[in-house]
Design a binder for these strands. Sequence first.
DNA 1: CTGACTGAAATTGTCGACAATCTTCCTCCC
DNA 2: GGGAGGAAGATTGTCGACAATTTCAGTCAG
Lengths: 225, 225
Amino acid sequence: MSTISVRHGDSSAAILERLRADILAGRLVPGERLGEVALARRFEVSRGPVREALRLLADAGLVSFTPNVGARVRELSLADARVLYELREALEAEAARLAALRATPEEARDLGALLKQHAGEIAAHPVGAYFQSGGDADFHIVIARLSGNPLILRLLDSELYPQLSLLRRRHGRVQGRGREALIEHERIQEAIAAGDGELAGLLMRRHIRASWTSLAGELSQEEER
Amino acid sequence: MSTISVRHGDSSAAILERLRADILAGRLVPGERLGEVALARRFEVSRGPVREALRLLADAGLVSFTPNVGARVRELSLADARVLYELREALEAEAARLAALRATPEEARDLGALLKQHAGEIAAHPVGAYFQSGGDADFHIVIARLSGNPLILRLLDSELYPQLSLLRRRHGRVQGRGREALIEHERIQEAIAAGDGELAGLLMRRHIRASWTSLAGELSQEEER
DNA sequence: CTGACTGAAATTGTCGACAATCTTCCTCCC
DNA sequence: GGGAGGAAGATTGTCGACAATTTCAGTCAG
């Protein structure tokens, strides 16, 4: 609760951020109704800014919107997941390719250091912790940043990843493939450090595809119940 | 002018469509101010729906938006063009790859027929007409559709292509490469008909890159003046 | 003449109210 | 008992007005 913003003209952005956080944290569950009046009361603001935030969230894929009916937290199907992963494959492969061409030696070293840290975390924590603790996400975001393409970064960071996060939440815990993923990450980092764009792109493509295979198996298995 | 919508709840969508058309047709030029009051008066509607449409256009990249200041028709720089083409390369290559895997023989034949028709138009019209008459756009949209991925289709059709269209308008006429493009299109169609996803993706990637090389040359040349 | 300041005008951000539409639930007819 | 019809309540879409902010013209000091 608590009042949302002080400066004039920021309330809609603040609400958007709050709603996004609530959805991704699971405080608002998929399918849940997002009534404008209720949200307006909750954020102590009028319906105008709330409407604006909801439209933007719908555009980002976190909210489904039906004219004259209203907004709900989006429910992602298995078909949606496939579509998302196909897009992810293309975007991340391109990001890795560009990152290899553009990353400075220092940036490549930093990426390697990040993986070293992840390796330590995997050794210390029980199986599967890597993926869930955000280590996987960190790595992919850094590469998107190194691509030097702000549009690709935006698509990944504020559209695709949030939707994937919502997907995992909806379909229960997904165990991930921590150890294998880390090894693949290391190969990708090497390709980037070597400036080999084609290889980095190829490896990233395989990495995403493997991740999809693993996820699709769990999801379809779950869908049968 | 004329009244915008009849049914309750559609005015913002109608305004969005009108504005998009005006921008793409050049009736609203890049950099031009888009005041909410003026637009509201023009469309005979209040500022609410206008605001909504402007926000969505900003999200689609056709309008630049500054908080507390307002919206303008977006001015795309050479750097923006590069970023757009990098994204386009990744998206269209993936679309071509998926199209090759999923298109039915009939769909592949239809695509071939479309190219036959384009060949006729090229023979009939003066140089460069292919590109500008929309033939090029047709081909790419069909492939995006054949990809079977609605998300990729949406990104291309309602985000990337409009921005590219705006870009060409801003930087004056771009002559295109009609004849070469057609030949490349034919090769891509063959790969799709053969179900060869990797080849289709590779050829499309080259096609987009060649298009970028041509465009970048003209743009940077123009930027020097 | 240049630059900072001031105040007015114009513009955006927000609000509360009304109209159109959807949803729910009750009634009535078969 | 089941389904069509309809009225009441709730919700979204739209509007006009007010508050906060930016912009711009004019003034004045240096």
